[in-house]
Amino acid sequence: MRILGLDIGSRSVDAVWLEDGRIVDWAVADSGFDPGSAATDFVGRDAHDAIVSTGYGRHAARERFGGSAVTEITAYGMGASALFPAAAAVLDIGGQDTKVIALGSGGKITDFEMNDKCAAGTGKFLEVMARALGFSLQEMADAALAAESGVAISSMCTVFAESEVTGLVHRGEDRRRIARGLHESIAKRTLGSLKRVNARGPLVFAGGVAKNPAMVTLIADGFAGEVWVPDEAQIVGAYGAALSAEGSGGG
């Protein structure tokens, strides 16, 4: 039985094709202005017996393509614990939202928290800040790692933080220290969420921002437990969605 898992997020559309619980193919596309068309491409690409959608576009996708829908929380919880059966918590920092999930025995979700109201501390935030600093995302992460200490950034609001960063640059502050300060403030906020849901290690760090080495380092430094990053951090949600289908073989 072949199952298509679709994760329709605000920044990307991710797909995983599952056969007997094993990933046989996967793909990632930018949502762009029309996430539906990226999803339609994936749906048409290959034969499948069932579709499960997740992400903020899950209900629209279910209406369009049929199948079922699960929330990102369930999808990430299932995906992460299938990849790492010992996982006790999941952190996902995506393009526009952040979620933390605490897992109990057998990967059962015991608590979760989502920040989905604004871009504070998400991939989008990092993009805007990188632009303000004149860096690419990779350069900004490298700069943050190269700095010994960070400048304290007082606001997590994307708009305020951007003007704060611009102000710091004009005052001649070292861009590497600013970059580090930005990463530190996201890490601090994220660690706070993890604490609120009583997350213990090992922690699976997924989502687009898990590809950022500075974020991974800072989260690992501040978290009282191991932090694991899956190779394809972006497709954990789509994988989990596919696994949630009955008869997926994934349990």
């Binding site: 903020y56 699960v70 929330t71 990102e72 929380i73 369930t74 059962k108 979700i109 015991t110 608590d111 979760f112 989502m114 989905d116 109201k117």
Partner: peptide
């Protein structure tokens, strides 16, 4: 028993986000 804490107001702007949190809670 599990608890979900919701803070909201009368506006309809956050209905989508609340629905996701509630659905995730129910799935849990």
């Amino acid at each position: 028993l599990p608890v979900l804490k919701i803070t909201t107001d009368y506006s309809m702007e956050d209905v989508g986000q609340l629905a996701t949190r509630v659905e995730a809670f129910l799935e849990m």
